[in-house]
Design a binder for these strands. Structure first.
Lengths: 229, 229
DNA sequence: CCAAAAGTGTTATCGCTACACCCATGA
DNA sequence: TCATGGGTGTAGCGATAACACTTTTGG
C-alpha cells in the first residue's frame, strides 16, 4: 500500500454493533462471546476491523450479517470511541453502530455458533473494553431518536397489538404511559392499520393486531414529525 | 509499533472541523485554503490526522486551537465519513466534528496565516473531497440539536438583543418566527437577564441587551428541556 | 415629522393530561 | 362467575398561534 499521506501513522479502525431487540416487555441486547485475545471468552459486542477497500457502514453491515444472518435491519452510526488506551491489545478506534431487530429473526445456527445470547438491558453482564459505555450511549440515542422518529416499529413483529407497542415505548422511555392517551395518539398519526385478527397471548379477551402502513410511515419520517409520547 | 492485532490492515484516521458562526443575520462557515496535495489551495475544512497517542476529540480540539486560537468553544462529534474512495490521496477515514463560535473571537493572525474566510452557508464555494456533504450534515445536526438544546447562545456575543437572538433562530430554522411569541417563550424560560444597556446598531430606538444566566442555562440543558420555537 | 425597528397583551385553538367504566373470555 | 387485560370518551388545562397598536429616535 502506498499513498500520498504515508508519512502519517496509520491506526486500526474497527466497527462494533450494538444489537437491540424487544421481548417480554423488556429491551434486550444481543451479546457474543469474544473470540480473540485479549479478553477471549468474555461477553462483547460484535465487531470487526474495517478492511482496506471496504466502507465503514459496509463493514458494519457485513458484521451484522455474519453474526446474525440478517440484512436490511435498521443499522445506524452511533459514535466513535477513540481513546488511545481503550484497548490494551493495541491502538484501535472503533466506530460504534446500533441495530434494531426483531428477536427471533436472527439465524439460530449462527447464534449458537457464536454463543450469542439476549440480555435485558438492565441486567447486563460485564462487558469487555468500553463496550458498556457503547451500550449506554446506544440506549441514550435510542431514547432520543424515538422522540422524533417512530423507531419502535423496527423492534416489533410485523403484526403487533397496541398494548405491545405501548409496552415497547414504556420500556424505551422508562415510564408508564396512559393506555388511552397512547392509543389515541398513535391512531391519530394514521400510520397503523387494524387487522381482523386478534392476538390472544396477552389476555383472555385478546387484542386486535395491527400492522403499519409503510408509505404513511415513511412519509411521516420524511416530514420529521414530532413523536413525543 | 507492535500490537496484538498487527495482522490487520491499518487505515489513516483524520479529524475535520466544521466551524459555524453567525453574523449579519446569516449562518456562516469558516473555510481554509488547503495546504497539502491533492487539491492544495482549494477551500476546505480544517483537519489533521489523529496522532498515535492522541484521543480523537483531543485531536479535533488541537486542530481547532491551532487554526483559530480558540479553546473552550462548543465542539462535538458529527459523523464518520469512511467511503474507501472518498480521498484520492489514500484511504482515509475522517471523523467529522462541528464547532460553534462567535465570529470575531478567532485569532486574526492565525486566520490570516491560513487564509481563512467566513462564508454564508448558502453561498459556499466548491470544497475539496466530500467536505460539502460534511457541512450539510453539520447543518442538519445543528438544526436538530437546536430543538432540544438552546445551542444558539454559543453563536452570539455575550451581550445580545432579543431581536438578534430571534434572527439567529430564523437563520437556523429557515423560517420567520413571530416576534412577540418568540420573546414570550424565551423570557418564560428564565435563562436570560436584561441589562441596562441598549444596542443601537439595529435601529434608532435601540434594543435592550441581554446576557444569559449560565447556571439556569446549564440546569435547563441538563434537564433536557424542549426548545422548539 | 416620519421611517424603521422595538416593545407589549389578548383571544382562540389545539393538544396533552387525567381519569372511570364496560367488554370479552378462559379458567 | 370472576379475574384479567382490552377497549372507549370527556372535561380541564396549559401551551401555542395569530394578530395590531404604541414607543422611541436618528435623519
Amino acid at each position: 500500500m502506498s499513498n500520498a499521506y504515508d508519512h502519517n501513522a496509520a491506526i486500526l479502525v474497527a466497527v462494533d454493533c450494538t444489537i437491540l431487540g424487544f421481548g417480554d416487555g423488556k429491551l434486550k441486547l444481543l451479546l457474543f462471546k469474544r473470540r480473540v485475545e485479549p479478553f477471549k471468552g468474555q461477553w462483547s459486542l460484535i465487531g470487526s476491523f474495517v478492511k482496506p477497500k471496504e466502507g465503514v457502514l459496509e463493514a458494519a453491515t457485513r458484521v451484522l450479517k455474519d453474526y446474525t444472518g440478517l440484512q436490511n435491519v435498521f443499522l445506524e452510526e452511533l459514535s466513535y470511541f477513540g481513546n488511545p488506551d481503550r484497548d490494551p491489545g493495541g491502538r484501535v478506534i472503533t466506530l460504534a453502530h446500533y441495530a434494531l431487530m426483531r428477536i427471533g429473526e436472527q439465524d439460530e445456527q449462527l447464534v449458537e455458533k457464536y454463543n450469542a445470547q439476549w440480555f435485558e438491558v438492565d441486567k447486563l453482564p460485564d462487558l469487555v473494553l468500553d463496550h458498556r459505555r457503547i451500550v449506554e450511549k446506544a440506549l441514550e440515542k435510542l431514547r432520543r431518536k424515538a422522540r422524533y422518529r417512530p423507531i419502535g416499529f423496527e423492534l416489533l413483529p410485523q403484526k403487533f397489538t397496541i398494548p405491545q407497542l405501548k409496552s415497547l415505548y414504556d420500556a424505551i422511555h422508562q415510564k408508564n404511559l396512559d393506555r388511552r392517551n397512547f392509543r389515541k395518539k398513535i391512531l391519530s398519526m394514521d400510520i397503523i392499520e387494524k387487522l381482523d385478527e386478534k392476538d390472544k397471548t396477552g389476555s383472555k379477551k385478546g387484542a386486535f393486531l395491527y400492522q403499519f402502513n409503510r408509505e404513511k410511515y415513511d412519509a411521516l419520517v420524511a416530514r420529521g414529525v414530532n413523536f413525543e409520547l
